Amino acid sequence: MEKEFQFEQMEHLVLQDDKVLLRILKAEDAVHLANFAENEPELFLYTLAAPDSKEKMKAYVDAAVSEFKNKVSIPFIVYDKQQLHYAGTTRIYDFNWAFKTMTIGFTWYGKAYQGTGLNKHCKYLLLSYAFEELGMERVEFRADSQNQRSIAAMKSIGCTEEGILRSHMPNNTGGRRHSIILSILKDEWFSSVKAMLHAKL
């Protein structure tokens, strides 16, 4: 089955385990995320289009939904099944079906969900889907080179640092950011990363 055809079937895609549920982000989900924008704007320190107000969060969600409709990305809202609350968002983007590569990013969680293991559960589900369902050969991750929390989190799930793209893109303060690039390869996933990450869940 062609991947582009599968993409059209993803509207009802759900990835879940006993800790977390990921489902496709919808426009009406902005209401579930508004409290983070209003009460925890520091979450978006390294986000280019920082959704640090109720209005900006609505625009952020609308843009993600538009990307999904245009087959540009697969945005998910993250639901913590233990705390029974929406926790944040994540996204799959930059697909290259011919080369079998893609990127996971646009990931953020409210403070109450950080350090709880939620991220590892999310990444296990997303990486399993990427390598075992979509047949990807490489999954990439990117972050502002100054975002030490994000970099540490990526390395903790088994990512290998590849290098820095200098002056890669604008930041949200009017300057430019250097982007760190990390990745996990298909053979790494099956030979070691999957078991290592599963043991941490």
Rank of each mutant, 00 (worst) to 15 (best):
K120I: 06
E137M: 15
S191P: 08
N172I: 00
G115K: 11
G110L: 01
P41C: 03
S191E: 13
H12Q: 15
D62A: 14
A153Y: 10
S179L: 04
I77P: 04
I180Y: 14
N39M: 03
K58E: 13
Y79S: 01
G158Q: 03
T103L: 01
D52P: 02
Q146F: 07
T89K: 00
E140L: 01
S179P: 06
S156K: 13
W108P: 02
T107H: 04
D144F: 11
A30G: 14
L43H: 04
P170S: 04
P75M: 04
L197Y: 13
G88A: 03
E42C: 05
E40M: 01
N96S: 07
Y60H: 12
N147T: 09
A153V: 02
M10K: 09
E4N: 08
G135Q: 12
E40W: 04
L165N: 05
I104T: 02
Q146L: 13
K200Q: 15
V61E: 07
H12Y: 11
I77H: 06
C159K: 03
H198A: 15
A37V: 01
M1S: 14
N119L: 08
S150I: 03
L197A: 14
E161C: 08
E188R: 15
A130Y: 08
L25N: 08
Q114G: 07
Y79P: 00
L84F: 05
H12P: 05
V31W: 10
E42F: 10
I184Y: 05
P75Q: 03
E28S: 11
W97Y: 02
V78H: 12
M154A: 08
I164A: 08
G174K: 07
P51C: 00
E67F: 09
D52K: 02
M136V: 11
D144G: 11
K69E: 15
K71N: 11
Y93R: 00
D62N: 12
A37K: 03
A63I: 07
F190R: 12
T89P: 00
A30S: 09
L13C: 09
H85M: 02
C159G: 01
L48G: 06
K69Q: 15
Y86V: 01
H168C: 03
L25V: 07
D94R: 00
G175K: 04
M169A: 14
R176D: 13
E188M: 15
Y46S: 04
F190D: 11
I157H: 05
H121K: 07
Y109P: 00
L21K: 13
A112S: 12
S167I: 06
V20E: 11
R177G: 06
E40R: 00
E133T: 13
T89L: 01
Y109E: 02
M196H: 15
Y124E: 11
A199Q: 14
K120D: 11
R138M: 08
Q6I: 07
K155F: 09
E8P: 10
A199I: 09
E28W: 10
N39I: 03
A59L: 15
Q16Y: 14
L22P: 04
A152C: 07
R138W: 08
A64H: 10
E28I: 12
E28M: 10
D144Y: 13
M196D: 14
G175I: 00
T173D: 11
I180C: 08
G174M: 05
A27L: 09
A152I: 05
F44N: 01
G174E: 09
S145N: 14
V14M: 13
K123S: 14
Y86F: 01
L201Q: 10
E42T: 06
Y79C: 02
K200I: 10
G158P: 01
A199S: 15
